[in-house]
Write a protein that binds this DNA or RNA. Sequence first.
DNA 1: CCTGAAAACTGAAAAAGATCAGTTTTGGCG
DNA 2: CGCCAAAACTGATCTTTTTCAGTTTTCAGG
Lengths: 237, 237
Amino acid sequence: MSITGLFPIDKWNFKSQSILNNLPAAEYEQLCAHMMEQEYKKGEILFREGTVPQGIFFIKRGKVKKYQVDRDGKEQIFYVANSGELIGYHAILTNERYPDSAAVLEDSTIACIPKEDFLEALERSTVLPQRLLRTLSHEFTVLTNSISILAQRSVRERLAIALIVLREKFKDEAPPGKDIVINISRKDLANIVGTGDENVTRFLTEFKTAGILDTHGRKIMIRDVGKLIALSGYNSR
Amino acid sequence: MSITGLFPIDKWNFKSQSILNNLPAAEYEQLCAHMMEQEYKKGEILFREGTVPQGIFFIKRGKVKKYQVDRDGKEQIFYVANSGELIGYHAILTNERYPDSAAVLEDSTIACIPKEDFLEALERSTVLPQRLLRTLSHEFTVLTNSISILAQRSVRERLAIALIVLREKFKDEAPPGKDIVINISRKDLANIVGTGDENVTRFLTEFKTAGILDTHGRKIMIRDVGKLIALSGYNSR
DNA sequence: CCTGAAAACTGAAAAAGATCAGTTTTGGCG
DNA sequence: CGCCAAAACTGATCTTTTTCAGTTTTCAGG
């Protein structure tokens, strides 16, 4: 059974990059007319809860976490966006103060397309609305899977699943033939899985002892995806 | 602080009914040309995981639960759709085998609009794609809130929140001046909250003892929404 | 109005997870 | 290269949640 064959996991890997790919040239030109490319450092915030972003963001290189912060300060990461993905359009589409925040997970190159250009392109374009609809529907599915996993699986299983998914997301960066390195803080991992960082440490130690992965500082290298999948609970029966 | 002012809670109450409201007459006519209205009984299944529905469903009266079933048979309800809402369009938009199921929660009147008519209307209409985009974006927000709640709140808090939301959904059915009655099985409640039905029973008993609600059989009548909100953890600080 | 199956409830025990209070390690910066 | 703050780790304890093994109640159909 392959990883991508595992239903909720390949859904989690969905990329919205297709939105801008192969747009009619004229539309693409117009959309990118006032695009601003910028370097962001780890930890920088793209937009914050309760605001309407200035535009939509296209991640050319790097990774961005999408999260919400609770009243009592607890952070929940519900998506890690990879290079090639587009974020920030939900707020612009609903034109509402938006409950999500986005922060840069590792040094990234991100382009910003002004709100107005995006909305205009959406009005004019013949393909953009359809693509967005499909993308949103797909994202919806990703979230419903996350809900099932968070509500029903143990912390160990959730962490195993998160690691499998993250491994896929960090695949691109590995030099050919070299290890895939997941570079993410324990706290961020905890905020994906919905637990504390102490728990993440504990289970990572357990996985390490079981020969499933290695750690060097905060870096995680997965050695045995098969065992992780077993632990994730998706091979049961 | 009003219920609807509570951020994640009013989001959960979102209705997608606006999608079909006040469409241009011609478009509406065309969309409804082959619409089939039908009575459904409690427990009937509208569509099942892994299928593409024949059409989209408009709930004229009643309620429908949207859920996913895990490999090991665990059911997770991620949304309760109310009268006025439209369901089933995700699968049709992505044109994929779809991971969600929908079953009738109480006797309902539901109209089915054939897939082809819906897709054609989507192509022709000037307002439908935009509306769907907004609706989907909004639904997305509802799900991210659910994720935060499920990942970070205790079972007691989750149940409190679920009850507040369900109370809003069952509001319409209460005769003026009479109690709002939440009519849902313990098992379904458990599958919303992500726990077992024994736990639901336990906490309901606790709430009853605290004067927060009454139960008659499986019916739940909430007496003190304020206390429930307090228990939900949303008044903290 | 009975009756049987499904649903709801209860208690006790075990397991899982959160929390607290530290110690050790890491990695960026002067 | 060493220092310092932040992050990671560890162990012990306490709380929450699950699980199991029943009993009681409800309610739909005969």
